[in-house]
């Protein structure tokens, strides 16, 4: 569905997005992860035809995105980072208006409202909506015309855990219907749960790209953490597959002196820090 080759782009003279290569298959959820300012939204703008002066190739739904015509958008759904709605119209009027811009058959608006818990707020004006409500409305606006490819830029940011859960379920539902989804997020747990593959993006480049599972397995070894008392509490760790070589640990076990011991698997976040040399903000 998406194929990116040797993509390069910059807002300024200084190189920014560089050497980007990846492919996304139909029915896949593909994650863009990276620190703030890494270029995730920029990459999304390129794929959605909003930035056209890039070099290299970005083919989306069989179309080179910079050469797209207006029909390109019949099959693309975008959930922007920020609400993009008429504040003075009601939520329902907004969806009615934006829906009327497509030639395709639309999805059932009321059902969408209910799915994200806005069933009772359809006729409120958007300026009366809270931040999280606007995010949810913006999200269903992207689904309205039942597009084949969805671009979601931090859809769950600012949502409470239960609304965030609902939204993630809808995203998985869309995947099972065969929709291709590009998900940009700062939330490593969401990424690990939802994404089939993720790309770590730092300073405009892809630093690693694989399934969350493979990334965790290949980059990080499970560690054993233990503590004991020697004038004060001391915490040590060793790789799980090297416990035999840790004589201190063996001694402590012999002497029955361990205060605590547990294994810890790396999370996607640890891998991210390892791969990129920095944390997510």
């Amino acid at each position: 569905m998406i194929k990116v080759e040797n993509l390069e782009f910059s807002y300024t003279k200084k190189p920014f997005i560089k050497d980007i290569n990846f492919e996304v298959k139909k029915g896949e959820i593909f994650g863009f992860l990276g620190p703030s300012g890494a270029g995730k939204s920029t990459l999304q703008k390129i794929l959605t035809g909003l930035i056209t002066n890039y070099s290299g190739s970005a083919i989306v739904n069989h179309t080179e995105s910079k050469n797209h015509d207006d029909r390109f958008y019949e099959n693309i759904g975008l959930d922007f980072e920020f609400p993009s709605l008429y504040e003075k119209l009601t939520a329902r009027q907004n969806l009615k208006f934006f829906g009327s811009l497509y030639n395709k058959k639309l999805r059932d608006t009321e059902e969408l409202f209910h799915k994200v818990g806005l069933g009772y707020d359809m006729d409120k004006k958007v300026f009366e909506y809270s931040k999280g409500m606007k995010s949810r409305l913006n999200f269903i606006k992207a689904l309205l015309h039942d597009p084949d490819i969805l671009f979601l830029d931090e859809p769950t940011s600012g949502l409470d855990p239960s609304n965030s859960r609902d939204m993630k379920n809808i995203i998985l539902e869309e995947k099972h219907k065969g929709k291709t989804i590009i998900l940009t997020t700062h939330n490593m747990n969401d990424a690990a749960e939802l994404c089939d593959r993720v790309a770590f993006i730092v300073d405009g480049r892809v630093k690693a790209l694989d399934t969350p599972h493979n990334l965790i397995m290949s980059k990080g070894a499970t560690k054993l953490k233990y503590s004991y008392y020697d004038k004060k509490e001391i915490i040590r760790q060793c790789p799980l597959n090297k416990t035999v070589e840790d004589s201190k640990l063996l001694d402590l076990i012999q002497q029955n002196k361990l205060l605590s011991i547990h294994s810890s698997e790396p999370t996607l976040n640890d891998i991210f820090i390892e791969v990129t040399g920095r944390g997510l903000q």
Partner: peptide, 11 residues
């Protein structure tokens, strides 16, 4: 209100 963004990514 960024409505223009929504219109720019519609047909």
């Amino acid at each position: 209100q960024r409505v223009l963004n929504s219109i720019a990514v519609s047909p």
